[in-house]
Nucleic acid binder design. Structure first.
Lengths: 156, 156
DNA sequence: CACATTTGCATCGCACACGATTTAATTTTG
DNA sequence: CAAAATTAAATCGTGTGCGATGCAAATGTG
């Protein structure tokens, strides 16, 4: 009933999450590279399709990424013409990011991707309810895991 | 009942997995860096604690990583004295990897980590059964997702 | 209002991931 | 057995993640 050896790879919860995360990124790849996108770039587009304009920090909050990751990523996206960066007039420190026509236009092409991938996953083995349940569980975990970053001594 | 906009970040299953994966890695970090380990290095140790000796490819199969990721990673671990690399005598192409005394000795120190992190996650909100269920689901997904790598047109 | 602190972004360094290519050793085939 | 094909690692280039640091603008404080 109890775990015999907590260090056995098969018994760890961390490894499946790590692997599935990479496998899903890999599944997105063929669809995204038609648009010249990487998976994190696609995530940035997702939030910008929902918001006309966001600062680098605001994008970072939504994706839980810091500027040290986002700054170069956004600059690469600017270089490929997906978005534009503008210093805020109110606060010169802030860089506001907004999509170009090209970035906006990719929305229609990207729209069917998640559904398509979900469909190819669904089968007798995997029901939609299971996917929804998984998502609910993970969302809850995100809340818990991102809550205690300062409690270094005992956090997960 | 149905998804209204499949491109909404909150409705995507991919993003929670991606985020939880990174959050878990972050949770491991303070424990692992006491030993000077990164998370992928810890994974390599996990499989080598279960097997006296493995080739680079065999480690890659278990962790689903290719040699272009593993070769430098393993070399870094060799440099820090965790393991040794030896060309196989039977097949000069194969590099056999085995732990040093130091690499073996880290097992006892690493043993309590997964349990400790699991414990800090468990609460009224998160029951052990939920964790087990999540793991079962993810394991099933790994099987499905890693099955059709050549079917590029329609895979997830 | 001067000065210390905070904030937003960028940069640097390091360690993955991973597609693509290279090199060397082994196996297959004619 | 020699040439072709396959295989195991390594290498290269690009793009993340992320801790640490730097810098300039904004804010707080006396």
């Amino acid at each position: 009933m109890k775990k015999q050896n907590p260090l056995k790879l098969e018994q760890q919860i961390c490894f499946p999450i790590y692997s599935v995360s990479r496998l899903i990124t890999k599944a997105y790849k063929p669809h995204l590279e038609k648009m010249g996108l990487t998976y994190p770039q696609y995530l940035v587009l997702l939030v910008l399709w929902e918001h006309i304009e966001l600062s680098v920090n605001q994008i970072g909050e939504k994706l839980m990424l810091n500027t040290n990751t986002l700054s170069p990523l956004i600059k690469r996206m600017e270089k490929t013409g997906l978005l534009q960066r503008n210093r805020s007039e109110k606060d010169e420190r802030t860089v506001m990011v907004s999509l170009t026509e090209k970035g906006l236009s990719y929305q229609s092409e990207a729209m069917p991707i998640p559904e398509k991938l979900l469909h190819s996953l669904l089968s007798e083995e995997v029901q939609l309810t299971e996917v929804m349940l998984l998502k609910d569980t993970l969302d809850k975990w995100i809340t818990i895991l991102s809550k205690k970053p300062e409690n270094q001594s005992n956090n997960l």
